[in-house]
């Protein structure tokens, strides 16, 4: 299966530079910037164009500072609905 195409937007003013997202990113797409934000934190930036929109960075971010996008092709939208964990649970119950 071809790699999914994704992107993220980091709310740099929320970011505290904890680097948990860097470690979580399976694509090694994130780095600490060389600049600080208004609060004085070295925030995180995306430096590699390898993002698949897997959400790992957003999941571990304690600040709720990451928005994730993933290119949706038709096949994927039918199968996945990944975002909604509620539907995951419903499926489990049905089983």
């Amino acid at each position: 299966m071809a790699k999914a195409k994704g992107d993220i937007v980091i709310d740099i003013e929320r970011c505290k530079g904890c680097e948990l997202c860097i470690e979580a990113c399976p694509q090694d797409a994130l780095e600490v910037s060389r600049q600080v934000n208004k609060k004085g934190y070295l925030y995180i930036v995306k430096v590699e164009d390898t993002c698949t929109g897997c959400e790992s960075c957003a999941l571990v971010c304690p600040e709720g500072g990451v928005t994730v996008y993933r290119v949706q092709n038709k096949k994927k939208t039918q199968v996945a609905q990944v975002k909604n964990i509620t539907s995951d649970i419903n499926i489990t119950v049905k089983e």
């Binding site: 992107d7 164009d49 996008y69 975002k83």
Partner: peptide
């Protein structure tokens, strides 16, 4: 350098702050 505008659209949005 990085952002691809075509990806960051509302229909591609999969995760945002609740």
């Amino acid at each position: 350098v990085i952002r691809e505008e075509s990806v960051c659209t509302s229909e591609n949005l999969v995760y945002e702050r609740p």
